[in-house]
Design a protein around this nucleic acid. Structure first.
Lengths: 191, 191
DNA sequence: TGTACATCAGTGAACGCGCGTTCACTGATGTAC
DNA sequence: TGTACATCAGTGAACGCGCGTTCACTGATGTAC
């Protein structure tokens, strides 16, 4: 049965939101077209009215993630505190797409890789603005290094089945990041 | 046709080696039982004489990776130089299992997670011995932080479809790691 | 504003395919004498 | 050391299943008068 133009628009957004959650939770391959449509309250048959293929859904989902609200911070310590928290670790569905999907994206076709590259570029730029450093180059280095550390630590903390080790990874990386980040931050960390 | 006991032993090792390569290259889900057996020079039917299931193969493959030869280093700079190289980035098959599979492992059953946790534990211990730091706690922190950075950077460098950005991630993380790692290393990096 | 018809979003059965897994069979290996 | 038989590693056809994708159909929406 036909639905209104507004409904069509809403449905597309709902489908993309569901896909964004499911892909982060379970990865691209484990999530079926039927899963996504069911999660959006529709049946699988209608899928191809919205997307050319599952790969197209993946690319559009990743493109949509760029628009997701990012908590703004002016301080690296605050970013690390939030990013490397138990809450973020345990919330795949609404967490960082890079930590959840970067590995899989490297084996995906062009579209997905290009979208995630754009996402990563933005992440570096955002972090570059609040990273410590004397000049632009040092701040960019810090943005990349901090991103890699936080993403890597979150992935490892999610991988291990030892809860104590998982917490240790988050805590140690947090402490290490702030302690090693130049004299100012080091002092702040000790205090 | 029956084969010798020696042949059986050799075949098992060959299968596990093939699986280790294929899983790192393409992930657990994309690699089929048939792929692994074919890569080992056998047919898929014989698989269940060696393994209880595909999950069992995954767990045993990860357990086997612990025995893989690790290039020994006495110096963090040398480790970072090798780990964050273009060669390592481009060689999934023989590269670090954590960078290739950590994300997927977090969605795998117990067996796989336990094996990878043991692998990670060893990595932390190995790096803790060569990490800079005044006391044991600081060295362990550094081992965890450095591991997270290197693994995260390699994953991101592999993810992006922009070759320049990929190289920048490797270089920046290398520079950042060594520069931020206390005064001694900082000086060494400048030199 | 009401009516008649064309449009098309959504449905669910059906498709071809490849997956993990099973199994009857084969023939070389291992063993008993 | 040779022979006769039991064992069992490997083969390839076959299975049930779930996947991505297609399609004829339905009925509410949008449009023309």
């Amino acid at each position: 049965m036909r639905v209104s133009r507004q409904q069509v628009e809403d449905n597309k957004r709902t489908i993309l939101e569901a896909a964004g959650r499911l892909f982060r939770e379970r990865g691209f391959e484990s999530v079926t077209v039927t899963d996504v449509m069911k999660s959006a309250g529709l049946t699988h048959g209608g899928f191809y009215g919205y997307f050319k293929s599952k790969d197209d859904l993946i690319a559009q989902t990743l493109a949509g993630l760029r628009g997701e609200a990012e908590p703004k911070s002016t301080d690296l310590a605050a970013v690390a505190q939030r990013y490397l928290s138990a809450e973020h670790r345990d919330d795949f569905a609404h967490g960082c797409p890079l930590a959840a999907l970067a590995s899989e994206v490297s084996r995906q076709p062009q579209g997905a890789r290009t979208e995630m590259t754009a996402f990563l570029k933005r992440q570096f730029e955002r972090l570059g603005k609040i990273a410590p450093g004397l000049d632009e180059e040092q701040r960019r280095r810090a943005a990349i290094g901090n991103s890699a550390s936080m993403i890597g630590a979150l992935i490892l903390a999610r991988m291990t089945d030892d809860p104590a080790m998982s917490n240790e990874i988050l805590e140690a990386t947090r402490g290490w990041l702030l302690a090693e980040d130049g004299e100012g931050a080091k002092a702040a960390d000790v205090a």
